[in-house]
Design a protein around this nucleic acid. Sequence first.
DNA 1: TCTGGGGTCCTGGGACTT
DNA 2: TCTGAAGTCCCAGGACCC
Length: 437
Amino acid sequence: MAPATRYASGVSETAASSPLIRRIAHLDMDAFYASCELLRYPQLKGLPVVIGGGRRKEDDLLGKLQAAYPDGDWTEDSFAEKLDRIPVEFFPRIEGYTGRGVITTATYAARQFGIGSAMGLMKAAKLCPQAILLPVDFERYRHFSRSFKSIITDIAPVMQDRGVDEVYIDFTEVPGGQREGGRVLARLIQKSIFDATGLTCSIGVAPNKLIAKMASEFNKPNGISIVHEADLQSLIWPLACRKINGVGPKADEKLKGFGIYTIGELAAREPHWLVEHFGKSYGAWLHEAAWGRDDRPLETESEPVSMSRETTFDRDLHAVRDRAELGAVFTRLCEQVAADLKRKGYEGRTIGIKIRYDNFQAVTRDQSIDGYTHDAQRIRQVAGQCLKRVDLSRRIRLLGVRVGTLVKAGTAPHADKPYIAAEETPYEQADLFFTDD
DNA sequence: TCTGGGGTCCTGGGACTT
DNA sequence: TCTGAAGTCCCAGGACCC
């Protein structure tokens, strides 16, 4: 008999004698942003809380506390340690919110009022005016994200990052990864994350990423779901097509138009019929997805393709009448993208802009240049040329700047040619906001 | 009541090259 | 020199994701 081996994970296992079965886990943190907030404001547990929106300086908690308790000890230094003692009534309510923000996430208590992600804050204010509104704190969420991912890779090193709050993990060759279909290892990871951070997560384990992703939603929150190949018809086929990662609202509507509501109904369609109606690539993929087939490997390393910054204005702006404001924002966006590129060590050669008009129609323009850059001025120059190719007589809701075709800084040959501006278009834009005067 | 920000990937058309 | 086919690159837009 092979000797038992004890691993760093704490799971002991005898040397495997049967062939390994591919086991892929999808781990999804439960209400991640909201949970991170509740860790520092435990007094808000059970209350409707929404996270989102932008600036609300008038609701600055520290300022309010200092005003209410002028003799208290609410100094900036001691503030961070006393967050859990801030009385609930001091937290800003969503009532009367005016602005364009949307909700990033909401606690389960808030969801009971019909509030959900991506909903406009003004609508949420009507549904549940007493809800507490917290601004997003990405730095904090990134901190917890790094923590839980490092716990996972200590146990199971083959992990694919899939955003701030979810990952894929290859259980196949990890000790415990085969036991009970992966449940033993999933339980260990769940417990390790909770012990270290106080956060819960849900895990689905399946033969591939596609099914694992669906499985992680079966038992939320704090659940584990195990799906085997043989479970396809009983567990996957009854689900709505929209549950497939890659079927969005548009494809779902189209499928419904053909009377296809469930994954099982999708699986029943002939591949050639799907190709005929959804295109060669997407149609073929729909067929494979419905049959639970997905052999994509985990991608443990990835390079960014583009970096961008964009902003939505409090009110729609006009290129001529709001020239100064737009010009300043445009410059700032270019500087921010340049700073992002430098900080992360990249340069790009495709520079572009994005505009959303007041009717929500979006247009993009981009231009590739000789050589690579992360210089704010150069980005602004080229992005300015792109702006000349769009209609600037209409009011603008959003402005964005993007740099793509990235390479690691210092690895690309730089063109020594001086920058030459493209020819002016006939459109008379001399007085518009992006001109370099 | 409209609908954020930061991404990836795919498709299709047009220009260009061979 | 002209024409057409095929391949590639660039660009714009759209769908989708977290």
